[in-house]
Nucleic acid binder design. Sequence first.
DNA 1: CAACATAAGTTAAACGATTAAATTTTGTAT
DNA 2: ATACAAAATTTAATCGTTTAACTTATGTTG
Lengths: 354, 354
Amino acid sequence: MTPITIKDIAREAGVSTATVSYVINKSRPVMPEKHKRVMDVISKTNYQPNRVAKSLRTKKTNIIGVLAEDILSFPAVRIINGISEYIEKTDYNILLNDLRMLDSLYNKYDQVIHQKDKINKALSFLVYGAKVDAIIYVGMFDRDISEILSNINKPIIIAYSTSVDEHTCSVSYENENAAAELTKYVINCGHKHIAVITGIAHTAPAQERLKGINRSFKESGLVLDSTYVRNGDWERASGYVCMKDLLDSHSDALPTAVLAMNDLMAIGAMDAIRDNGLRIPEDISVAGFDNREVSEFVYPKLTTVEIDLQSIGYTAALMATQKLSGHGEYADKRNIIVPSKLQIRDTVSLISNL
Amino acid sequence: MTPITIKDIAREAGVSTATVSYVINKSRPVMPEKHKRVMDVISKTNYQPNRVAKSLRTKKTNIIGVLAEDILSFPAVRIINGISEYIEKTDYNILLNDLRMLDSLYNKYDQVIHQKDKINKALSFLVYGAKVDAIIYVGMFDRDISEILSNINKPIIIAYSTSVDEHTCSVSYENENAAAELTKYVINCGHKHIAVITGIAHTAPAQERLKGINRSFKESGLVLDSTYVRNGDWERASGYVCMKDLLDSHSDALPTAVLAMNDLMAIGAMDAIRDNGLRIPEDISVAGFDNREVSEFVYPKLTTVEIDLQSIGYTAALMATQKLSGHGEYADKRNIIVPSKLQIRDTVSLISNL
DNA sequence: CAACATAAGTTAAACGATTAAATTTTGTAT
DNA sequence: ATACAAAATTTAATCGTTTAACTTATGTTG
């Protein structure tokens, strides 16, 4: 009933606890004969060293703290799965802290204060209370979000956004190139009159994606007409509103394609196009960004850009462990960018190039 | 740099470490004056007790191990969020172990062996290695999945399926009543010729849902015609195939409504109905089960049954902590069932009752 | 005020591992 | 065989808490 300890193993094998420890951790050579005796007893008794005691002594918990803004969000759960995929292969474990931020029902200002406080508390608990070896933050980590950061000398990896200070590292995704590629694809399909529905304009992803779009326009000798641009807020409804407005204001010269900066808005735009009696992609082509599950459920299936979220998580975990061990290709990297890739489906039509 | 310990607090406050401990844990009365001195030093230094040391001494880690079959699955992430929602309010933490079972690429037989092995390893690590206080298993926990279960005298709660042995408890969801309610709703809308697309027929949820459907049929004086029943496999494609077959084989007497045992199959069925040139819900009504995200994205929006997954997680966590403390309404319950509820949307039409 | 009960505070031994330092064993060279 | 070096093993301190047992202070009662 009372659990087996290293002392039991030592007694049973007729050696000291130190020898058992050396065998388990391979930290010193042990004569083959004793080695075997110890191993036999261990496997016979199914002994598992008490990690708590080990942690206290070594000051390493072998725990990676995962701090997620909201586990229910589309990217978070995939990133965590990627973290898990790597961690599974190691001796580390995941202590999950879900901040459940989307749940908060405070007014906007209070919410920011409250959330900052919440993050600080969680960070401080993970570091000083739970004594995790490293932290992976899953979400958008703003500069100065945490005051305690500067006194923490443990690896802190931000997954899904880019680090802006020297206390943290990050693994983020390709926005600009991916947007450029998608745009180039649409242009190569023969489209010249292309509208754009952006995300919240001041956010980094929206700006980067816009840069990519502009680049491809320029490279193809086109110019992005600002009357064909509408600012959405990443939500489906805004995609609908923006598209409706585009259709109304350009009833004489409709765009032949519309780039929405995410799938949700793309789907909203599709609804608006259909409500106006137009067909997708025959009359207007649509492209999104994110490759959400629904993009395969809508009709026609949405052409979009896939962000490799799993890989972001995997890489973040890999980076964390490499920073802990001090070697490996990521051990002293600061920011890693995981490539995104085009998902060509059915919402962009090939039009004759006359 | 070197972290603050209880000794530092004791020295600074001019008391013994025991007194500090009594203050922190409220485990013995301490004179107001000393109490204040201790508290002042604690808040001034931002001291956080080392949980590792505490755990070693008390043999309680305050960690709940969460073992998820696959965090990417629709229910899992919502259940974990619910667990998190409760745990956040307590002094406990979540150690997450994602088995990532859907990823496995073994052949079916090997997979079963391998998965059982994987679960056993994970359980055994959580109990003997990480020394978690309790375990919540998120998924379908089969009888005899684990041999080590019988020697574990810690609470093990299964979330999302029903416990079948005396070593585990469970929090699951209402299938039969919910299916009965949905069926009754469809019947009350005037439908008499109702087809059914089942999930994998031998599984518990499929059987329970079928029971509910049959009950409502009986209560309304109808009989479920077996030629209107098709067995699907929970996937979208099978919904399509089943519906196609139903339409082909009953072109003379089409059903006016079809109950699919989950949303994915319902959506497959909707595709098939549309491909046959029929309208939803004017020609054929459709209902699903699960309330997946996509059920709001498809057109028309799907009428379905919502399983309160968040609440399953919340309750499982609550149950775990109550079993640990020994009091509370769930402290000695074995199986809890969380009610499901109808989500009426646009895919079931009201037909005149002539 | 003696005698004792009660309250408050301290001391020191755990918890179960790791690991310097000390000790024993083994091997090697003279 | 002896001396010494190297290798293998053990001893015991340590990590930072909690808590039983002990000590000291305080209060109460006849």
